[in-house]
Design a binder for these strands. Structure first.
Lengths: 198, 198
DNA sequence: CACTGTATTGTACAAATGGTCAACAATGGT
DNA sequence: ACCATTGTTGACCATTTGTACAATACAGTG
């Protein structure tokens, strides 16, 4: 006996939210169609009706996750600092704060990252997202190098951008398994290390 | 009809190697008792006979992996540098080179890291390993701070050690999904950033 | 109201998986 | 030579999982 109807868009969104709930709780590897259906209080056949294959649900959940996670963008507050060094510091602070406010999103994203090691589609999807991330830092790093060419001998804008990404990732990743991880002390040390370039 | 016999130790080692083969190829989530047994050319009942539960096999594989991956240790060549800054640089270089020479180990370790997010036992196991890792850097960083107290204002030995771990992890993690990742440029930028302390 | 397309459900099924068990063979001690 | 221990196997079972399908209810249109 079929239940109430819903428009295509609403139902898909409802199922995706349920999928996020399940995946972030039990891991992307433990996501099952039936589990998602139960979470969404819907028959498991309906999930397949809307997503055809489990694979597609997993891919669409990644897209949903990337959108739902407020992706890095240089906020006005960050952009308002005149000195590139201050912008870098503000951006790092903003991102670390954001990540620690969305632990479930970060964990799930991390799951996808591990998956991406073996699945081409997921890898390229994550790769392009990371590229965008890196580019935001690259711009600031390039300015930093122009302002003080001798500050970081041997460094390049691309290299420094990758290092900045490591700071963010490393912080999130270490905090995930170490409950005593001190993000503030971490950020302060990063700032102290790069601070004398201004 | 039972096959040839083998001593307990040999058989376990053989199965663990097969488990590593399967897990590093298909991911720890796709590891099945039957898959491991097939890889080891042995009946799946035998795998259970030696490890009782799949969970135990997974745990012992982690131990095996940590042992097999030549864990960070300050080699004589690294320790021979008189200046702490040079030791740091040599250690970073050594670790990045090591990680890129064992890509399968790194990928699998990363899988376990993601697993550790949801499984207490694995998390603490990885956590203590990471702790050891961090301590090796902490020693060098502490010396660095003593030698040049004003070099990194606001930084602490613990914080800097965590940052160093991020460098290593970030490099490995980015290289895993970005085939164009340039580890040399990355290392050069790290060196340039910390280089002026010496 | 009849008709049509779509949303929804329960059932069914084959494959895979973790785990148990009885039988059986190799080994070593007595 | 007998026996207990231990390694090894194939058969078996219950459960889960992805997917297919037929039946049914609902909404909109003519």
């Amino acid at each position: 006996m079929p239940g109430k109807r819903a428009s295509e868009g609403e139902r898909r969104e409802q199922i995706l939210r349920a999928a996020f709930e399940v995946a972030s709780r039990d891991g992307i590897g433990s996501l099952t169609i039936r589990g998602v259906a139960a979470e969404a209080q819907v028959s498991h056949a309906l999930v397949i009706f809307h997503f055809q294959r489990k694979e597609r649900l997993v891919h669409e959940l990644l897209d949903w996750l990337i959108e739902a996670t407020s992706v890095l963008h240089v906020s006005e507050e960050v952009a308002s600092h005149p000195r590139a060094l201050d912008r870098l510091h503000a951006l790092l602070q903003q991102e670390i704060a954001r990540l620690s406010h969305q632990p479930r999103h970060v964990r799930l994203f991390f799951d996808y990252w591990a998956l991406g090691t073996r699945h081409e589609v997921i890898r390229t999807r994550i790769g392009s997202e990371m590229e965008r991330y890196r580019m935001a830092f690259r711009a600031i790093m390039a300015e930093l190098l122009v302002a003080e060419p001798a500050a970081f001998p041997g460094a390049t804008a691309n290299g420094l951008a990758a290092v900045a990404v490591s700071w963010i990732q490393g912080c999130a990743v270490q905090a995930m398994i170490d409950p005593n991880f001190d993000a503030d002390e971490y950020l302060a040390s990063v700032a102290g290390m790069v601070g004398r370039a201004g």
